[in-house]
Design a protein around this nucleic acid. Structure first.
Length: 584
RNA sequence: GGCCCCGUAGCUCAACCGGAUAGAGCACUCGCCUUCUAAGCGAGGGGUUGCAGGUUCGAGUCCUGCCGGGGUCACCA
């Protein structure tokens, strides 16, 4: 059992038992076990694990669920791991496991360390996670931060679950906004050359371009000052986007995000890739010249029918067909997007994930349609939308004004609260739920703050290890692996062991659902169970981890909490958060 | 108006491709602090999962229609 996933182990046991019943003729042959699950029961009173096998099999077998459950229970009880099998409710089978089965998770965790829970679920399938992909026109802001943290944690999660992951950023450097950037930089360049400048509407007045203007002066002196736009625009596009990407890369680095690939939209032009992508669609009969209907309901005032080159995305689930060429013959922005995803498909990815801001929700269907068409439905594209971040300061909404240039940047956030707090907090919400971010509350050191609570659990364990060493107790790896785990028998301890046992399963669930926030919630629960046990030591001295007069028992308890530390550390690692060794 | 997301305890949110009596935290009530770190702990009250239908042995979860909030809507990326 390479993955040490107790739930899949027991599921295998259940399936084997079903097979045995089939062999005996008690159940008909040819049953589909796909719907059979083994999961932790909602209520701990229901035992250690519950399976729905009897209910799933009842209809195809033509038997009553409870009757099947009874037969199944008899079979399962023959296995030494199963100490109880009770039929309950409509046909659930509640299983009780031998405590030793649970406790085996402890040496497994200690053995694997940071790799505990690593799964082969992905089977090496290649998955591309595209995230951030902010326009290269300025520093990243809070909205981008959430996308960056989410995408990065998702990528790490998939990596841990056995996928071969590529982290990718698509640079929108081919459109008109790059010209705007170049003109804005030119103004800063004139300023650097001593001129008074105004920033008209449609330029970027942000002060972050001051340094770029000065760098430009360092390079060209005053040579470009009296030149017409046609002379400098091309030069400044590259110079400016390079500068912005340096800025963005540094922003990303400040929260620990490092991309494998930065893919330039501009690099698509002139390579024939756009043409090839559209030719591919054309060969499938999905490109035509036509006129779109006006949008239903609200009609734009300046709307008029035009003949355009259209992609028949409606055949792949979209609501309307989408233009790929403008009426002047140039590409729409959608065309390079198609080509870019075509390239991803051609690079051999088995699965694609795009992380967009919620304001891009309107592009989901067309992108999925494009990938579906380009890959003939072979490559799934999942698009995760990250909802808005609402900023607060001391409970009061923190207003941003784009016009006044006071929008909050990623750097503002990271400089104030640090990367760990930023990352963890942004992962304590589902991606499609809005997120409140209070600069003060996220830094609070109390139980109310999940970031602290989880970190504190890890630090506490480290503290105990330190005390143990000071007390002369050997907590070396070999000693812990050899611990006598029959010492672990109190309910609060066993509860903690079970929680550790859920980690491999939880990880896989989070991975298949593309939901890293589940790790954050799990880690909070794990920390909570640990803190609870710690506090029980107040009233029941025998629950304290260090038993002065009993080194052997201490070692058993320390192996338990070391396993907790392993999971906390592995989980935080996936989320990109440093496990603290001490809190100060 | 079309499409997408959301609607769960007073508040902020979970709920494992549909499972048992829908769970946490905050707030509230009660009881606990000379400790391996009380920067807390334990117990309790609190619900027609927006509304109305449907599918199912079983629905917060899937389908349909409404209500409410947000986002978005052809030749801008």
């Amino acid at each position: 059992m390479p993955e040490m996933n107790l739930f899949s182990d027991i599921r295998t046991l259940v399936v084997d038992a079903l097979d045995a019943l089939v062999a005996e003729g008690a159940l008909p042959a040819g049953l589909d076990y796909a719907g059979v699950t083994v999961e932790p029961p909602r209520d701990a009173l229901h035992g250690d694990m519950a399976t729905n096998a009897a209910m799933v099999m009842a209809r195809p077998a033509g038997l009553k669920p409870r009757d099947i459950a009874e037969m199944l229970a008899a079979k399962l009880l023959a296995d030494p791991r199963i100490v109880a099998a009770d039929v309950a409710g409509p046909g659930f089978l509640n299983l009780g496991l031998d405590a030793r089965v649970w406790c085996a998770i402890i040496p497994a965790a200690l053995e694997k360390g940071a790799d505990f829970g690593r799964s082969t679920l992905g089977a090496g399938r290649k998955v591309n996670v595209e995230y951030v992909s902010a326009n290269p026109t300025g520093p990243l802001h809070v909205g981008h931060t959430r996308g960056a943290v989410f995408g990065d944690a998702l990528a790490s999660l998939l990596d841990f679950a056995g996928y071969q992951v590529t982290r990718e950023y698509y640079i929108n450097d081919g459109g008109a906004q790059v010209d705007v950037l170049a003109r804005s930089v030119y103004l800063r360049y004139l300023e650097a050359n001593g001129q008074e400048v105004q920033f008209p509407d449609g330029t970027y007045p942000g002060s972050y371009l001051v340094a770029v203007g000065e760098a430009l002066k360092d390079k060209y002196g005053d040579a470009l000052v009296d030149e017409p736009e046609s002379e400098w625009l091309e030069k400044l596009r590259d110079f400016s986007t390079d500068a912005m990407m340096d800025l963005i890369r540094a922003d990303l680095a400040s929260i620990g995000v490092r991309m494998d690939v930065f893919y330039s939209e501009k690099s698509l032009y002139g390579t024939g890739l756009i043409e090839a992508a559209l030719a591919d669609l054309d060969s499938k009969g999905l490109i035509y010249e036509g006129v779109l209907d006006p949008p239903k309901g609200k009609q734009p005032e300046d709307w008029e029918p035009r003949v355009q080159t259209l992609f028949k995305s409606t055949l792949h689930g979209d609501d309307v067909d989408r233009p790929v060429k403008k009426s002047d013959g140039g590409w729409t922005y959608f065309a390079p997007d198609i080509a870019y995803h075509f390239d991803k498909v051609q690079r051999g990815f088995d699965e694609l994930i795009d992380v967009f801001g919620a304001d891009h929700g309107g592009y989901v269907k067309r992108m999925k349609a494009a990938v579906s068409a380009l890959s003939d439905g072979r490559v799934p594209l999942d698009i995760k939308l990250t909802q808005l971040v609402k900023l607060y300061k001391n409970g009061a909404p923190y207003k941003m004004s784009k016009r006044a240039g006071t929008f909050v940047t990623l750097r503002d956030v990271v400089d104030q609260v640090g990367p760990d707090v930023t990352r963890f907090h942004m992962l304590t919400r589902k991606n499609d739920a809005p997120l409140d971010f209070d600069f003060d509350k996220v830094q609070e050191q109390s139980k109310d703050n999940p970031v602290f609570y989880v970190q504190y659990a890890h630090a506490r364990i480290c503290s105990v290890l330190g005390k143990a060493a000071a007390a002369g107790i050997d907590t070396g790896r070999e000693t812990l692996l050899a611990a006598d785990l029959s010492e672990i028998r109190h309910d609060a301890e066993v509860k903690l062991v079970r929680k550790i046992g859920e980690w491999p399963r939880l990880l896989e669930l989070a991975a298949v659902n593309h939901e890293p926030h589940r790790l954050a919630f799990y880690l909070y629960d794990l920390a909570s169970d640990f803190h609870a046990l710690w506090n029980r030591g107040n009233e029941l001295p025998e629950l304290r981890f260090l038993q002065e007069s009993n080194p052997q028992r201490s070692v058993a308890k320390i192996s338990l909490i070391s396993a907790v530390a392993v999971v906390l550390s592995a989980g935080l690692g996936i989320l990109g958060v440093t496990p603290m060794k001490e809190m100060r």
